[in-house]
Nucleic acid binder design. Structure first.
Lengths: 218, 218
DNA sequence: CTATCGGCCATACCGTCGGTACGTACCCAT
DNA sequence: ATGGGTACGTACCGACGGTATGGCCGATAG
């Protein structure tokens, strides 16, 4: 049976991670002190160092938490059945929404590679959001929806574009409009990868139908 | 006339910036101490704090130096005359090469947004590499080479994709092969944005002609 | 019910590093 | 010559990441 003591311990660990997510998101990795994290969780640094080997490990725990939460939102969309193209487009829109979460933005996209080191970050991402994008691209290629591009590289590029789009949205004066433009543009980019003469059945949504996007340019 | 004293001072400043670029590239922002930077420049922290208001300012000076050097390599290519499409493609290849510089990679692409803050970094980038990409995209749109996409957003996405590609190359086991695949893929993406029926004169290079890129996939 | 054992956490402390205060040598104009 | 400004060096402070150590308390055996 679940020991009481173990419940306490787990609860403090969770509190520490939650506190870390909050502070890392608000003030960044360097701007957050461990005393502060511990204080917000109503414990001391001793407890923190009991559960985590150091600041990096705490960050990685926060990273995992944020990623897992994001995965739950994306997983059911991408892994569900349906036409690969439709699925991928739905995934794109969902990913843009996920990126609007400030915690995801800062911890996963921005500080992740710097704090964990790019190699370690990349490795972690394999099991999370990048992995899903890669899955989608692979599905599009193997189903013949888009051209026979190198999946690994193209997924990375797409991931980079999506991340940049997410940053753009997060920093935009009008996030809603920016969000629409980013979704439209990404869709347009992926559409450009479709085979010249689609062998697919019914023609799925092209970016052209998003009506509310006539842009100004001198 | 140029005072001797002023020459000394300027030289000291340059030495500090060079030292900073080197150490920031090798050990990152957080992993580099100011004493170390000063020591490598054969001065003390007092000199450093005379020339720069703090660690951030030193980083931004290093950032500017690296960016300026990169710009000199790109500027002549992008701003030169010639067919917009050819120019843009040459710019893409040149940018990929620039990204192979570890200093550019780490200081500008990875740590820049984190250390300077995304907003400040974005502002600085307007005058540097992002500005050039934006220029190229705008030229492609206004010359009718590619579709009427929102320039600002599309440039951001492209920039993100390029940065991701650069990271990929830098971390790849076979950088040369990765470099080729990235260049090919990026070219393919941009090609996907071309107008369906090109009104342009002679058909410029399509990504298809890069022969040495047949990829394996199960 | 008692003893004690071990996991969980608090407290005190250390080393490092960014930043500050202040002293000093040197140059220049008046 | 001399007052002032520039270009540093030196000594020091506070904050913070990390460590060592000790105490509390629930779990478990007898």
């Amino acid at each position: 049976m679940r020991s009481r003591r173990l419940e306490y311990s787990e609860s403090t660990r969770d509190a520490l991670v939650d506190s870390a997510v909050e502070l890392f998101t608000k003030r960044g990795y360097a701007g957050t002190s461990l005393d502060e994290v511990a204080k917000r969780a109503r414990v001391t640094k001793g407890a923190l160092y009991h559960h985590f080997s150091g600041k990096q490990a705490l960050f990685e725990a926060a990273f995992d938490t944020v990623e897992t939460k994001a995965m739950r939102r994306l997983g059911e969309i991408v892994s569900g059945p349906g036409h690969p193209w439709e699925t991928a487009m739905a995934g794109l829109r969902a990913y843009v929404r996920v990126c609007l979460d400030p915690a995801f933005q800062r911890i996963v996209v921005h500080e992740g590679p710097v704090v964990m080191g790019w190699a370690r970050w990349r490795e972690a991402e394999e099991h999370f959001s990048y992995g899903m994008i890669r899955e989608s691209v692979a599905a599009l290629v193997s189903s013949g929806e888009i051209e026979d591009v190198p999946v690994e590289v193209m997924s990375r590029l797409l991931y980079g574009a999506l991340s940049a789009g997410a940053s753009l949205i997060a920093g935009a004066a009008d996030p809603r409009k920016a969000s629409e433009e980013v979704a439209w543009s990404i869709t347009r980019v992926v559409s450009g990868l479709r085979r010249p003469v689609a062998a697919g059945a019914d023609a799925p949504a092209e970016p052209g139908d998003r009506s509310a996007s006539r842009r100004r340019r001198r």
